[in-house]
């Protein structure tokens, strides 16, 4: 488990990407947010989200990771892990 400050920073940045890609500034995400909680988050927009996150953090997810994310928290932990490995 990474420290909360870093995780919160990543969630905040990912939140902005959600707002941009899903074209809805009212969307607020947290660790527990799942696909079911956000109407606009469907399989098509999921692709655009993943690509935007990859570009923004300059990381690459694997095909399996993309399928396996259960919630926003896991996704953001995955991002942190990749950022850590890059250093």
């Amino acid at each position: 488990m990474k420290n909360n400050e870093e995780l919160n920073y990543v969630i905040k940045k990912v939140n902005a990407i959600f707002n941009d890609v899903l074209e809805n500034d009212d969307i607020k995400i947290n660790y527990e947010t799942t696909v079911k909680d956000i109407d606009e988050w469907d399989s098509l927009s999921h692709i655009a989200l993943v690509v935007s996150i990859e570009k923004s953090f300059q990381i690459r997810f694997t095909a399996k990771e993309i399928q396996d994310f259960k919630n926003v928290g896991e996704m953001c932990e995955g991002i942190l892990l990749k950022l850590g490995n890059k250093k």
């Binding site: 098509l44 692709i47 690509v51 997810f61 095909a63």
Partner: peptide
């Protein structure tokens, strides 16, 4: 991975 996950043959 877009191809694997979504059968997309073109990147965005």
């Amino acid at each position: 991975k877009m191809y694997v996950n979504a059968d997309m043959v073109f990147s965005l």
